[in-house]
């Protein structure tokens, strides 16, 4: 089967057995991302989990870069690493995350969750590989101004075709802002 697969792939000119440099880097970084993600969900030290999440998200930013989605990559860094993770750490500290291992970091549901995740992963990977094993995408040469993920390209589509969702999103952000303020405000009679 593998041989047949390899044959079918090689017949199209792109073989899994002769990866390009970008592919090698992508796979390596991907492994790092995956490892960091697994540590994020498995470590029993709460703040370590957040820091591993930083690694995973940063690695994903590199993956975006490799996929020539430069703008998305920097947005990822700016929003996720700069804000979301900081917020998460903030929340962890406010909920008094302890130093060291928390033996109760995982709920009793973990074995069910593990089984489910493994089954889901098996299903999804099988389906994805089955569907896309022969699909090749041509990455545009980096540096060209009209590349896929440049700021200009993104800006143009965003403000030409996606203006309405963009504005709707701004409303959503505003609502989230108001909601967060209302939620975290301490009522006077409580204080």
């Amino acid at each position: 089967m593998t041989a047949a697969l390899a044959a079918s792939l090689s017949s199209q000119g792109h073989s899994f057995l002769s990866p390009t440099g970008v592919e090698i880097v992508f796979v390596l970084v991907g492994l790092a991302v995956l490892g960091a993600a697994v540590l994020t969900v498995s470590t029993s030290q709460l703040v370590h989990a957040a820091l591993w999440l930083v690694v995973a998200l940063g690695g994903l930013a590199i993956e975006y870069l490799l996929l020539t989605a430069e703008f998305i990559a920097w947005v990822q860094v700016l929003i996720y690493l700069g804000s979301v993770v900081v917020l998460v750490l903030f929340g962890l500290m406010l909920t008094r995350a302890p130093i060291g291992r928390s033996p109760d970091a995982d709920s009793g549901n973990r074995w069910v969750a593990l089984g489910l995740a493994v089954v889901a992963a098996g299903t999804l990977v099988t389906l994805v590989v089955d569907a896309f094993r022969c699909t090749w995408m041509d990455l545009p040469a980096s540096g060209s101004t009209s590349v896929n993920g440049s700021t200009q390209a993104n800006g143009e589509v965003l403000f030409r075709y996606w203006v309405l969702p963009f504005e709707a999103l701004s409303v959503l952000l505003l609502a989230a802002l108001v909601g967060a303020i209302v939620l975290s405000r301490r009522h006077r009679e409580e204080g």
Partner: peptide, 16 residues
């Protein structure tokens, strides 16, 4: 690049 790489990575990340 094979599309399978990011797709599989995404699937695995999702399950994690």
């Amino acid at each position: 690049m094979h599309l399978a790489y990011p797709a599989v990575l995404a699937a695995l990340l999702f399950c994690v």
